[in-house]
Design a protein around this nucleic acid. Structure first.
Lengths: 245, 245
DNA sequence: CGCCATCTTGACACGTATCAACAGGCGTGG
DNA sequence: CCACGCCTGTTGATACGTGTCAAGATGGCG
C-alpha cells in the first residue's frame, strides 16, 4: 500500500487515492513532503466500539480520520461520563506534544485511520512549519466547537440539546450534502446516527430516558421522521435549527 | 515606554521588565525578535467590566494578558449566557487567523494587556515558527481546559460545580502560591473572586440563587470561610478537591 | 422461535429554577 | 452625619424539568 509509482509521479499512491488529502492535514504538503510523510503512515481499519486511545496511556502515534466517526470522552472517578467531542474525516486525532493522553477515543462507527508514529510526525512538523500551521488551525476549530458545545451543555433545555445534537450530525456526517445545503439546495436529509442512546445522553449531559422522550416529542411534532432506531430523516433542516435554542 | 536602551542590551525595556515574558508567548523569542515584536506592542490598562472583544466584531488586534482576569462568554439569541473560559496572565487573548470574533471578552477584574495589531503578529508568526508553536500549545491547553469544563457542565451536581469553580480560581489566581501548593507546601489559601455571582452562575450553567445556596452550604460544612462577598479562604485545599466530584 | 441488548414509556422523586421578600454595602444628597 | 436608594447577594416557598426506578416494546441474531 505504501509503495510509490515512480514512473508516474512523486506522489505516493496511498496519498493519490486519498479522499481527504486536500481538506486535511496533508493538504499542507507538496508531493515531496507527502512522500516523506507517507513513509511512516499506515492505514488501519477499526470496527465500531473499539478503543483507539486509552485515557492516561502514553502517546505513541497520531492519526487522521479517513472515514467514520470517532468519539472523545472523559470520565469522573465514580463512572459518570461525558462525551467531549466527535471527530469526522479528515480530522486529526491525538494530542500532539503531550506525553500522555488525557481522554478516551473510541470508534463510534467503523472507521479508517491513517496512523503515523509520534516521533515521525513531530520530526516532520519541525521540518515543515506549514504542518504545524494546519494542526494549529484544527486545534482552534476544535476549541471553537468545544466552546459552542459548552453553551449547549450549560444553558440549553433537554429538548434543545437533542435538537442541537441532531443538527450537528445532520451537518457533519456527509460533507457532500452539507456543501449543497450551505448553497440552499437541500432542506431534507436522512442520516444514520453514529451514537447509541447512551452515547448521545453522555454527549448532552442527559439520561437515555430523557433523550428518548425528547426524540419522540420531536417525532410527534414532525421535526424528524424515524426510519429506524439509528436512522432518521429531517424533512426541514431550518425547522430543526429553530429548535436548537 | 517602547524605547530601548541601546547602551545596555538589545532587549526593549518594556520587555525586560515584563513579568510574564518567560512564561508567555514571548518566551519563544530571542532579544532581537523581542525587539521586532515590541515595536508593535502597546500596554493598555482596562478596568473591570470593560468589553475587550465584542462578539462578531472584526479582529484588529490580539493581546497578552499581563495582569488580571479576562472572561470569555457566548450568548444565545434569547439572552441566555454561558461563560466559556477565563484567562489569566500570561494567556494570549484573541482568535488568531479569524476574520471575526465569535465570542465576547470582558475584563473580569482590572486588567493590563499587551496589545499587538493583527497584521503585525501574523507577519511575525510567519517569520518565527516558534511563535506559532507557542500559540499552538496555548490553543491545545485551552482545548484541554474547555473539555474538562464540559465534564463539569454536563455531569456534575450544583454543589460539585461550585466547588470546581472555587478550585479553579484558587489554583489559577496566583501563580506563586500555586507553585508552592504543587510542592505540598500550602494547604490554606485566601483569594478574591474575579467574578460576580451572576458570572459564576453563567460559568457553571446555574442560577445565582443556586450558586449562593451552595456557597452557604460549603461555608456551613467548613470547606470555605467567607471573609466578605468577594473574598474567601479555603483552609484545606484537598478537602475542597474532594468536593469537586 | 426465543434470547438478549437496546430503546421506549410510565409513575414518582428529587434537584434546581423561579418568584418573591429580605439583608447588607456603598455612594449620593439632604 | 444620617437617610435614602440602588445594587448585589441571601434566604424562603413553590413549581417544574429532568432523574430514577421499573415495566414493556422492539429488533437483531443465534
Amino acid at each position: 500500500m505504501e509503495r510509490q509509482d515512480i514512473h508516474n509521479s512523486d506522489m505516493p499512491v496511498l496519498c493519490r487515492n486519498c479522499e481527504v488529502r486536500h481538506r486535511g492535514l496533508c493538504g499542507a504538503l507538496e508531493a515531496g513532503q507527502l512522500l516523506a510523510l507517507s513513509r511512516h503512515t499506515q492505514m488501519v481499519r477499526q470496527e465500531a466500539g473499539s478503543e483507539l486511545i486509552a485515557n492516561e496511556s502514553e502517546v505513541h502515534s497520531y492519526a487522521n480520520v479517513m472515514r467514520g466517526v470517532v468519539k472523545l470522552s472523559k470520565m469522573l472517578e465514580d463512572g459518570r461520563q461525558q462525551v467531549v467531542g466527535l471527530q469526522f474525516a479528515p480530522d486529526f486525532l491525538g494530542r500532539i506534544y503531550a506525553r500522555h493522553n488525557n481522554l478516551t477515543a473510541e470508534a463510534a462507527s467503523d472507521v479508517e485511520l491513517c496512523r503515523i508514529p509520534k516521533t515521525a510526525l513531530e520530526k516532520l512538523v519541525e521540518e515543515y512549519p506549514e504542518l504545524e500551521h494546519r494542526l494549529h488551525e484544527q486545534a482552534l476549530r476544535e476549541l471553537d466547537e468545544a466552546r459552542d458545545w459548552m453553551v449547549t451543555l450549560g444553558r440549553k433545555t433537554a429538548s434543545e440539546k437533542v435538537a442541537s445534537f441532531l443538527w450537528l450530525i445532520a451537518t457533519h456526517i456527509d460533507p457532500v450534502t452539507e456543501a449543497r445545503r450551505q448553497e440552499g439546495l437541500v432542506e431534507s436529509v436522512t442520516f444514520d446516527l453514529p451514537l447509541s442512546r447512551t452515547d448521545i445522553a453522555d454527549f448532552l449531559g442527559l439520561t437515555i430516558e430523557t433523550v428518548s422522550r425528547q426524540l419522540t416529542k420531536l417525532r410527534k411534532d414532525g421535526v424528524i421522521e424515524v426510519v429506524n432506531n439509528r436512522t432518521f430523516t429531517v424533512p426541514d433542516l431550518e425547522r430543526l435549527e429553530t429548535r436548537c435554542g
